[in-house]
Design a protein around this nucleic acid. Structure first.
Length: 263
DNA sequence: ATGCCGTATGATATACGA
């Protein structure tokens, strides 16, 4: 099974990129974040035409929004209302073999890395803590879970272009990276991307729009994640970050992450 | 840390991203 997670930064603005990507890489499942559209206006037909006959979408106007499109059948799962806000950051499904797939868009967190001064940062920390606790309660050695998404945290030094210069920048502050380690420990998650590209090799999935030449400056961060439970670790086969997608005209600022499973 | 780009919207400025 070829699984993809991609913060698309507006599905409607990026439909032709999805076409090209699906034809080039032939994924079985694509998890989108930041679809930025209500369910009624979601261009589902364009996706089903590509063979993704099964989908689960959770969107709202303008902001956030997540979706799973799949060539394999699944059963949709109910998700909690995180932090008392129904802001469309989580969608989950269970495939016929029992594997559960959770797709998250964790809050970006604003600019000031202080929950006292910045409600968005407080929301981000509360969201992460809630996800940590929710999965901790579900923990079981037999669980075949996959968690993907734009988690908006680059946890390791080699997940950012400059560890020192980003220590006070939201996405790489110790309070966030520590909390992300707690999230991972709470369900014994395996970081599938780092399974294939271990530290200290640099690895990024996001590059700012503001750099004149994103490849040349290469001031990236690894904000996108694929985590699996230990029961799925031996099923991991390969991982690619599709840099070509970031190079296209009017791209998303995130590159798609492709993980192949023996499933 | 800086950059000043990109998305969306009852819009021609503003919120948000990170």
């Amino acid at each position: 099974m070829r699984l993809v997670t991609w913060n698309i930064n507006s599905i409607r603005a990026r439909l032709h990129h999805v076409d090209h990507f699906a034809e080039t890489h032939n994924p079985d499942v694509i998890c989108f974040q930041e679809t930025k559209v209500t369910d009624n206006d979601f261009p589902t037909k364009a996706l089903t035409k590509l063979g993704f006959e099964h989908y689960e979408i959770a969107g709202q106007k303008s902001y956030n929004g997540v979706a799973i499109f799949s060539k394999r059948p699944f059963e949709a799962l109910e998700c909690p209302i995180w932090c008392g806000k129904d802001d469309k950051r989580h969608v989950a499904v269970r495939f016929e073999d029992g594997t559960e797939l959770h797709n998250f868009y964790i809050p970006a967190g604003g600019d000031i890395p202080d929950p006292e001064q910045n409600d968005k940062f407080a929301h981000k920390l509360e969201f992460m803590s809630s996800v940590r606790d929710w999965f901790a309660e579900k923990k079981h050695a037999d669980n075949k879970f996959i968690l993907v998404g734009d988690l908006n945290v680059a946890p390791y030094e080699s997940d950012v272009w400059s560890h020192k210069q980003l220590l006070k920048v939201v996405s790489h502050t110790p309070i966030e990276t520590d909390l992300m380690m707690e999230m991972m420990a709470a369900h014994d998650w395996v970081d599938a991307m780092r399974h294939f590209v271990p530290e200290p090799e640099q690895m990024y999935s996001w590059w700012s729009y503001r750099a004149r030449d994103w490849r040349k400056s290469n001031k990236g961060r690894r904000l996108d994640h694929v985590w699996v439970t230990p029961a799925l670790k031996s099923a991991l086969k390969a991982m690619t970050i599709d840099l070509e997608a970031r190079d296209r005209e009017k791209p998303s600022d995130h590159a798609p992450v492709i993980v192949d499973f023996d499933l």
